[in-house]
Simulated assay, not measured.
Amino acid sequence: MGGLLDNNLEDWDKVSEINIKGTLHLVQEAVPYLKKDEGGAVVFIGSAAAAIPSEDFLQMSYGIGKGALKTATHYLSKELGPLGIRVNNVAPGFKWGPVLESAFQAQADQYDLTLEEVTKPVKDKMALRRFPTDDDVAKSCIFFCSDYAKNVTGQNLYVDAGYVLN
C-alpha cells in the first residue's frame, strides 16, 4: 500500500517478482502444452488499479505491476496468436470479499463509522453502485476460456461495476 514516497523501492521488487515475472514464467511453461493442444487461452488477472489510481486505497506498486500485465497481454497476443493461443486480461476493481470487507471495516472502526458509511462513497464512484464479486470475475475468465471468445485476444475487460469510467 502507499505511493512512491511512502515506500522503499526495494520492497517493490517482491510485488514485481510475483505480479510480472511469476506470471510470465507460468505462461512460458504453459506454452508447449497449449501448442500441443492446437491452441488455448491465457487469462491474466489484472486490476483496475492499472488504469486509475484509487483515492481510497493508494497502491502504486500493485497498479504498476498490473499495468505491466495489461501491456504483456498485447505483446503476448501478437507473439502467441500464430500458435493459436489467445491472451486476455480480466481487470477487477474493488471486489467484495473478506479482504476488502476487512479493510473497509478497519477504516470504519478507525473513524467510528458504520461499514455502509465507509463503502458508500466508493460505491458512488461506480456506475452500477455495487461491488463486483469473485463470481463475477470468475465468469469473465470462463468467457475468455470458452469458444464464445475463440476470436478474442489482446483484450482487457474491466469487471469493476463502472469504476474506471469515473
Rank of each mutant, 00 (worst) to 15 (best):
E10P: 00
M1P: 09
G81P: 00
T114C: 09
F94C: 03
G93A: 07
L157C: 10
L5W: 10
A41T: 10
T133I: 05
K35G: 07
S16A: 14
I20F: 05
H25N: 09
G40V: 10
G39D: 09
G84S: 13
D56C: 11
V90W: 00
V152T: 14
P32V: 07
G39T: 07
D6R: 09
D109Y: 13
G46F: 02
E101V: 14
A108G: 09
I18W: 00
Q155C: 11
V152E: 01
T119R: 02
D112W: 12
L24Q: 01
Y75M: 12
V27C: 09
K95I: 14
G65N: 02
T114D: 09
G63R: 01
K95G: 07
S140W: 01
M1N: 10
C145T: 14
C141L: 09
V15T: 12
K123H: 08
V42R: 00
L80H: 03
L128R: 08
Y111N: 13
D135H: 08
F144P: 01
K35Y: 07
G81T: 09
A30F: 04
A108F: 12
Y163I: 03
A149M: 06
P92V: 06
K139P: 01
S102I: 15
L26M: 08
Y75E: 07
D11W: 07
F131E: 02
D11P: 05
A149C: 12
D109R: 14
N166C: 12
Q110I: 11
V31W: 02
K123F: 10
T114Y: 11
D124Y: 06
I142F: 08
L58R: 07
V42H: 02
A48N: 03
R129C: 13
K139C: 09
E55I: 15
R129Q: 15
V87N: 02
I142S: 08
K150N: 15
K66L: 05
S140M: 11
D109H: 13
T133L: 06
Y33T: 05
V15R: 00
M60A: 11
C145R: 04
S16P: 00
V15A: 02
F104H: 03
N151I: 09
E116Y: 04
D11K: 08
L100F: 06
D109P: 10
G97A: 06
K125C: 07
A41S: 15
N151S: 15
Q107R: 14
Q59H: 14
D56A: 14
E55S: 15
L83D: 15
P32M: 05
T133E: 04
Y75G: 14
T23C: 10
L4S: 09
K36T: 11
L34I: 10
L9W: 07
A50N: 02
A48S: 13
N8H: 13
F143C: 08
A49L: 03
C145V: 12
W12S: 05
A106W: 11
I142Q: 04
S47L: 04
V27F: 03
D13S: 11
Y75W: 11
V137P: 00
I64W: 00
A51Y: 10
F104M: 11
I52G: 05
V164W: 00
G40T: 12
D109F: 14
S47P: 02
L4P: 04
A108L: 11
F94I: 04
